[in-house]
Design a protein around this nucleic acid. Structure first.
Length: 879
DNA sequence: TTGTTGACTTGGTAATACTGAA
DNA sequence: TTCAGTATTACCAAGTCAACAA
């Protein structure tokens, strides 16, 4: 609901009126529709124990050590079922052994195995790469739990469409020069993952919606066109926002006008591959490949439209909107807001000493409140996996020692016993849990009362939720993977660490700690943060306070992200043709760029920025090490590395021969820890991508592939039926995306218990079933039923009634079995991440509208708020 | 040209809230 | 009403990427 324009001097608390209880959705309902219309060597191969709890995510809760067991331990390797691979596989490629224990005794299909077990692909005929030979999928029924997520995707798919699943991981553009891709054949818009199964559905999607936003001026929610976004000012720079407007525009920004040089022609359809034109920039080559002059002219037209729209913007600014009494957002270049009012941040309460004494060499020790606070931070982590990490303990002790002082009795962590504090903490937790509902409610209300004023900001007169208004409390740094700084003390943040960003003329938030003051107050309207402080663990980095995901600012940027990914669809064919050609380029840089782009496109790998020594040793595409990619002749690449958050990525893919050879070449003469792409980094790669499409960066491919996959899966799998079936279809499609993106989660602690319980239920039902069968046989002979297990006599039922009971019990058993199956399948797959970050919500909304599925079934309250901008999309929308 | 910095997005897990069966 | 299982939210770590500085 829109909030009236608000006096800057008014206190925030005053506007926290009734509408607080209103749903956050459609806050600016009057304008949302407008929006929619417009617009290393040290990386151990085996010891990847990075994660806490289940460092290397095991699907069955087994420890990472179990996963260290490598090739040859698996009795039966899983089949090549990667979305990008052929299902044809040979045995014994398993890198890790299946879980030796803790498996539920479910049916074979449900049995949990090691998620990291490898899949293997049998090569295709290189020249027939697009249509490789179909191979029998003789082990398709195998459990998939032991496969990497990426390898699991197409197992289900291959069952339905094995011939497609047999494709080599490749570009849709044929590698054969003489065979230009035919439009009707081309499924370039679809990631390979989806293409395997979706080809048959080509054309099934509805017509593209009228969302041709690229050529329209971007409209902000207030109806004003936004203008080119400029660079941001570093926090250290205290220049005014006005000064910021002289900075050069960001090339990547979607709103940046396309320069004539940059405006790469949409490479819709290629005629024939030219001769080797390695020396010609790819963008030029794409242009060259454009089939007709008409397309060229249309591209020019598009550029013109963009520029004319820019003119329109200027006109609008001058005529209509500049007269407004209130400055409009986007009225300045790079400007994110015009007025910004908020109340700053809330600090965690000061430490309250508990007085519980820890033991040192068996004796209680007196600690000062400060020393006790740090000891408590450690004590509360006694039941975590960090306790098994030497680095954590060492870092903790080093920092604690500084607080204890040189001559303190405590000298050695091994002699410390934190159990009394741990137990005190547990009992406090328990007490809290035992509180009555009323007490809990009262506490909640008290907290809300204290925090209420920090929860909201007024941005350009509209009340918006603030995301993280609470300052991070002190604690021990919980770095993921083998983070070198884990266990270090994250000191308490004070007001004089914090820089506030607020509108000029807005009341400066009162510092909540008496006698202290903010470090700095700025009025920078080119950024969206409300406050920041330096990260105590890595002082060169910052912690920001932003608006919540439901805010218009975030929504706008979200929408731009998806629109950019959507634009990639128009360029993808040319991009794929271009990199395919460069696989064999004489220029080693071009060759590396081509192969890297291919991997990013096909495997949804992250870009892979360089990392410092004081960070966990993880990699992305550009930082892959030689040891992370093993070529297995004739054309298999075996990937094994730790990606973001130290999550292991394992996959085996069949690739085109030129890619395979290129990888072999990149590896030659290098050691395991050397960079595979030694002539490449993310900035070079992204600079190259921008030549192909304005604003294109590596991460756009992830969004693109995820959204395309979702759409294609939904199209393919939706077959009507009950609501529950449709929901299941959506979740299945969501799962495919999560697998492509390698979104893993650790198996919940209660998973095996839950499975056991379900199995017990099945056993009970089966026993019952047997009884019914006996009774039925007797009833048919006119005999009474036998006594029940409890010894009591049973009712004499007619054979028909007994048959009905048998049928009902069978249905119950089937349902539970399905439940087990779903639980097993999803136990290591995180569906939420892709939904929040990668799937264009308009695909979901449009699908829901087409199939009469309530959107609430797909999006929870916060997602509905986050995606408010997508809610009025036409049912015919296609990505 | 390369390295650094700043701003923002992405991502998994712990904590908390909710829900339905016993 | 309790409790277990599930869903949601909060938290904060860890990425990406563009601008800027050297």
């Amino acid at each position: 609901m829109a909030v009236e324009a608000f006096s800057k001097t008014k206190l925030m608390a005053e506007v926290d009126d009734d509408d607080d209880d209103m749903p956050l959705v459609f806050k600016r309902s009057s304008t949302t529709s407008k929006q929619n219309q417009s617009n290393s060597s040290s990386q151990k191969q085996d010891g990847r124990s990075g994660r806490q709890a289940s460092d290397v995510r095991s699907p069955n809760g087994q420890s990472s050590s179990a996963q260290k067991v490598k090739a040859g331990t698996s009795s039966k390797a899983s089949r090549a079922v990667s979305p990008f691979t052929s299902p044809k596989a040979s045995p014994s490629s398993g890198r890790t052994s299946p879980a030796p224990n803790s498996r539920p005794s479910a049916s074979a299909g449900n049995q949990a195995k090691d998620v990291n077990q490898q899949s293997k692909i049998v090569p295709n005929e290189p020249k027939q790469a697009v249509e490789p030979k179909s191979e029998p999928n003789d082990e398709a029924e195998d459990s998939e739990d032991d496969k990497p997520l990426s390898a699991r995707l197409s197992s289900g798919l291959s069952k339905s469409n094995s011939s497609h699943a047999n494709k080599v991981l490749g570009t849709s553009a044929s590698v054969q020069k003489s065979r230009p891709p035919k439009k009707e054949d081309s499924d370039d818009e679809i990631p390979l993952a989806s293409r395997f199964q979706l080809k048959s559905n080509a054309g099934a999607s509805t017509s593209k919606s009228s969302n041709s936003e690229e050529v329209k001026p971007k409209i902000r929610q207030n109806g004003l066109p936004s203008t080119t976004v400029l660079s941001k000012r570093p926090p250290g720079d205290v220049k005014s926002a006005a000064q910021a407007s002289v900075k050069k525009p960001r090339l990547s920004d979607a709103s940046t006008p396309v320069s004539s040089k940059q405006a790469s022609v949409k490479p819709e359809k290629k005629t024939e591959d030219d001769d080797d034109d390695d020396d010609v920039p790819i963008s030029q080559r794409i242009k060259k490949s454009v089939a007709s002059a008409s397309k060229l002219s249309s591209a020019k037209k598009a550029t013109k439209v963009v520029s004319s729209s820019m003119k329109t913007k200027k006109k609008l600014k001058k005529s209509k909107y500049s007269k407004s009494s209130k400055l409009q957002p986007s009225s300045g270049e790079g400007q994110k807001w015009t007025t910004l009012v908020h109340n700053g941040v809330i600090f965690p309460p000061p430490y309250k000493p508990h007085g519980v004494k820890m033991l040192y060499k068996g004796k209680p020790v007196d600690l000062t409140p400060e020393q006790e606070e740090v000891a408590t931070m450690y004590a509360v982590m006694l039941d975590t996996d960090y306790m098994s990490k030497l680095q954590f303990k060492e870092n903790f002790m080093n920092d604690w020692r500084k607080i204890l002082g040189k001559n303190h009795v405590i000298q050695n962590l091994d002699d410390c016993d934190f159990t009394p504090i741990y137990e005190w903490h547990q009992s406090e937790k328990e007490k809290k849990k035992q509180m009555s509902t009323e007490e809990k409610k009262a506490l909640r209300e008290e907290k809300l009362k204290q925090e209420e004023k920090y929860m909201w900001a007024i941005v350009d007169g509209v009340k918006e939720k603030v995301g993280n208004f609470r300052v991070e409390p002190p604690g021990l740094f919980r770095g993921r993977g083998e983070h070198p700084k884990m266990g270090k003390l994250k000191r308490r943040i004070r007001p004089n660490d914090i820089t506030i960003n607020i509108g000029k003329g807005a009341p400066i938030p009162e510092c909540p700690i008496p006698g202290e003051r903010w470090k700095e107050v700025r009025h920078d309207n080119t950024v969206t943060w409300l406050a920041f402080w330096n990260d105590p663990i890595n002082p060169r980095e910052f912690k920001y306070v932003f608006l919540a995901a439901s805010s218009s600012l975030k929504g706008q940027s979200d929408k731009e992200k998806y629109e950019k990914a959507r634009r990639l669809k128009d360029y993808i064919e040319g991009i794929r043709s271009a990199y395919t050609k460069d696989f064999t380029s004489k220029d080693p840089v071009k060759r590396q760029i081509a192969v890297a782009t291919y991997l990013i496109d096909k495997l949804a790998l992250r870009a892979g920025n360089e990392k410092d020594d004081d960070e966990a040793d993880t990699v992305g595409c550009c930082t892959l090490k030689v040891e992370n990619v093993e070529p297995v002749p004739p054309n298999i690449l075996k990937f094994d590395f730790l990606g973001k958050d130290s999550i292991r990525y394992q996959n085996e893919v069949a690739v085109y021969e030129p890619v395979f050879k290129a990888i072999q070449l990149f590896r030659s003469g290098k050691k395991g820890g050397d960079d595979l792409f030694d002539k490449l980094d993310t900035s070079k790669l992204n600079a190259h991508l921008k030549e192909l499409m304005p604003g294109l960066t590596a991460k756009v491919f992830r969004t693109y592939n995820a959204s395309v996959t979702l759409e294609q899966q939904l199209t393919k799998l939706t077959q009507g039926g009950e609501l529950a079936e449709k929901v299941a279809v959506y979740n299945l499609a969501n799962k495919e995306v999560a697998i492509i993106c390698n979104h893993q989660r650790s198996v919940s602690k209660s998973h095996s218990v839950q499975i056991s319980k379900l199995n017990e239920k099945i056993d009970e039902l089966k026993a019952l079933l047997e009884e019914f069968k006996v009774d039925l046989a007797r009833a048919k002979k006119g005999k009474p039923p036998l006594k029940g297990a409890d010894g009591k006599a049973k009712r004499n039922l007619a054979p028909e009634a007994l048959q009905k009971k048998i049928d009902q019990t069978n249905v119950k058993i089937e349902n539970i079995e399905r439940q087990i199956e779903t639980k097993e399948e999803l136990k290591t797959v995180a569906l939420g991440t892709s939904k929040i970050n990668y799937l264009d919500p308009r695909i979901t909304v449009a699908w829901c509208k087409r199939h009469e599925v309530p959107i609430e079934k797909m999006f929870n309250k916060s997602l509905l708020a986050k995606f408010a901008w997508a809610m009025d999309v036409e049912p015919s929308f296609t990505f």
